[in-house]
Design a protein around this nucleic acid. Sequence first.
RNA 1: GCGCCCGUAGCUCAGCUGGAUAGAGCGUCGGACUUCUAAUCCGAGGGUCGCAGGUUCGAGUCCUGCCGGGCGCGCCA
Length: 553
Amino acid sequence: MTPEQLSQTIRDTLAELVRSGDLTLPAVPERVKVERPKVKEHGDYATNVALQLAKQAGLPPRELAQRLADRLADADGVKAAEVAGPGFLNVRVEAAAQGELAREIVRAGTAYGTSRSLSGERVNLEFVSANPTGPLTLASTRWAAVGDAQARVLAAAGADVTREYYFNDHGAQIDRFSRSLLARSRGEDVPEDGYPGAYIEEIAQQVVGARPDVKGLPDDDAQEVFRAEGVGLMFDEIKRSLHDFGVDFDVYFSERDLHDSGEVDEAVERLRGGGLTYESEGALWLRSTEYDDDRDRVLVRRDGRPTYICADAAYYLDKRGRGFDRVVILLGADHHGYINRYRALAAAFGDDPDRNLEMIIGQMVNLLREGRPVRMSKRAGDVLTMEDLVEAIGIDAARYALTRYSMDSTIEIDLDLWAKQANDNPVFYVQYAHARLASILRNAADLGVAPAGDEFDPGLLSHEREGDLLRALGEYPRVVQQAADLREPHRIARYLEDTAATFHKFYDECRVLPRGDEEPTPLHAARLLLVEATRVVVANGLGLLGVHAPERM
RNA sequence: GCGCCCGUAGCUCAGCUGGAUAGAGCGUCGGACUUCUAAUCCGAGGGUCGCAGGUUCGAGUCCUGCCGGGCGCGCCA
């Protein structure tokens, strides 16, 4: 019996009480929340429906809970139901009803935990979107890990997700980048506003290697060569880093294309007609204060040139035009000031900013080494990059460490901890659980013991640790659902850590395989099925985070 | 000054969108391997949930005001 099934049973029971006249309610609630109590004595599951419906029913909560408990106790799969505290209803489930879940999970395999709740939703998820003027920074690495996990989680909930990367390969930043390359190729210092990093030197060398003629060109032409070649090289490197990190985008979208295609101009025209703009001091403004912005924003400068906001507007329209109902954008905390003007843009186009647009802000990342912050010196251009992080702790640890925390938290990654191949490293703790599970299944195969099949007796899984584990596995679909609804993939990681712990405790107390000369029993087969189910869940969960589920360690 | 995020055990962080006695890992101390991976498990200790009010049967969670930290506030992108 899963929490969903129990929830349904409780609803049915409420409906029965109403029908039989034992209870008066304006309506039986759509959803009944069933939660896992923290304290063992409170049963396998608990619900607070009685507390919530007491007022409507005109009954004291405990009285309502009691009527519900009396009827619920007879329901299929329910072993006991009792009233507790101010009106909680604590439920114990039949072992047989609960054990059945192991078979369901194994049968569902990789589909276990997925749902259709977002089916039909076309989601455009934009993240990273770093301009190709340097290697991916630590912050970009966080969005890469979280964004990809986000995409996987949304897809698991049935959404049709496109991963998109927006970049700008022309304009002021790129000019500074190409001027820096040019300067370094001549052994000169980079300009005051240039990019000082050591990678500039390397790229400059590569460009010169590929285009030896660049030396003889006049400044303007040479700079253009450095721009075209340099951006290409830099972007290739970024894409390769992302790919190695396990993150591949469906679309790389160029801002330049928006200008070239005339979409920016079209967007401006549509904004003019959208009712959220006005002209002042010779410029066209967006009334973004309508959406809690600090001030209105200029769309078209006095000289007639559009600001970058127009490109954003055009880009938004482009996405909507490609059929995406939801435009989701992951941004760093340094861009939070962006939200309100973007919402105003969506509204100016007649969209509902609460439904069509979603901007997710994530906080920054700091590194710790030997207990001290690893500082990056901006002046020297020594930024901490994705590759630095991967080199220090590996891809799995990096992805896991970056997705394990709420996006709202500024995080500190202790490199010494995450590099350790030891149990204080959460990613190893979870991966070890998977390796252990896989190992049991391998040994079982060697012994010729198979997981229970048609003859499976779910009632055999009645040990307390088996119940704990089954209930943990039963939580998984709800965790995925919640992670998808709240856009919080870190919940998957936390769940995996809890579930790994629950499994390790089970392993400690419940022998799975026959020892020595022991004959295999139905209990061995049943436990083996539970092991297989657990492996499925851990593997599925790690998969949502883009972290490997190793067969051995 | 204004806006967004954070403040929970010595440290790093969860807390199921208002529920029961606030959790986990690490660190500290003490235990458990002749047999499925001890990269594990068991036990102990550790808290004015930043502060002060408010909302209600009930607040770490919601509201208001302070305090502290991070990040932003261009006709730059």
